[in-house]
Design a protein around this nucleic acid. Sequence first.
DNA 1: GGGCAATGGTAGCCTAGGCAACAAGAAGCC
DNA 2: GGCTTCTTGTTGCCTAGGCTACCATTGCCC
Lengths: 166, 166
Amino acid sequence: MEASPLNEIDDRRTIGFLLSDVARMMRAAFDRRVRRLGLTRSQWLVLSLLHRRPGVSQSELAEMLEVERAAAGRMVDRLERRHWLVRRPDRLDRRINRLYLTAEAEAVQAEMGCIAVELLDDAMAGLSGEEREALSEMLERVKAQLQGMAPRPAAPAPAPRPDLAP
Amino acid sequence: MEASPLNEIDDRRTIGFLLSDVARMMRAAFDRRVRRLGLTRSQWLVLSLLHRRPGVSQSELAEMLEVERAAAGRMVDRLERRHWLVRRPDRLDRRINRLYLTAEAEAVQAEMGCIAVELLDDAMAGLSGEEREALSEMLERVKAQLQGMAPRPAAPAPAPRPDLAP
DNA sequence: GGGCAATGGTAGCCTAGGCAACAAGAAGCC
DNA sequence: GGCTTCTTGTTGCCTAGGCTACCATTGCCC
């Protein structure tokens, strides 16, 4: 690290900036490719999630997206306003909204998935298979580290992911 | 029946999601650590840039941040409103605003730099030096690839101007 | 039963960024 | 000179997300 030519900007080369740059550029590229469908990357993420788990609640959605409940709620607002999904009250617990895709959303969802895969392939074109493997493995480690640094809301439950099927 | 043998896309493990997750978490962690100073990560980025290049124009700033001019302009608005920087008109070109840090900003800038380095160190704690090197090298390659895919302002124009010169 | 804590969802305010349209100014070209 | 074109910056509208405070409902515990 002492070897870094610190005199000027090593800055933008720093992993932190690189990470945020790459993430932003990927989101932008995705949004650009799918704008004609009237959706964004984040919205597609919700759709694809709901496709595989119809009926989740907003809180569950938020947790799966790793996002605040408020943000998830607003996302649902936007998607509902455009008829990509519907909220339906839970029978037993009147606090809960259960979320279901509309037919059109189901139709579009798959197409978006293809686009996502294509984009990822394009973006990773410069990396070999092994490198991609290594990259995602390292990113997972970094993510785990960051999760450990996050402000744990309550219980630091170590392995609370047994089975969520009711 | 939490999908383990699921042929569906690995979802959250996919490099794309990992990237955006990690980037978001790093930004969040940074913001959390420096909120007491009244700044965010993005704002600090501007400050540190202006520290080393006082007098840049907004367009130059936008370019260095790799962000739209509008976004940069609003960032400058916020920072000016809180007296972290000042706009000063260029003598020769009345379109241009030149940007300069205030004294307080200069003072804070360094401290934030330390926090950034600390955070990065924490986040990367699980990676060896070589791995960090490899990671940033790969990210740079991905970024270059994405830049190549971006809508180049110059060339790709399909000549939407059917020659209006008489 | 009744009270209190936890949970689910919403609304308000904030930063951050994209895209598009525009005004003012500067530059280039007759 | 004047006309056209490019640049710089701003504004408006949009998504996206964080944080806080708040309401309604549920559950828990006594």
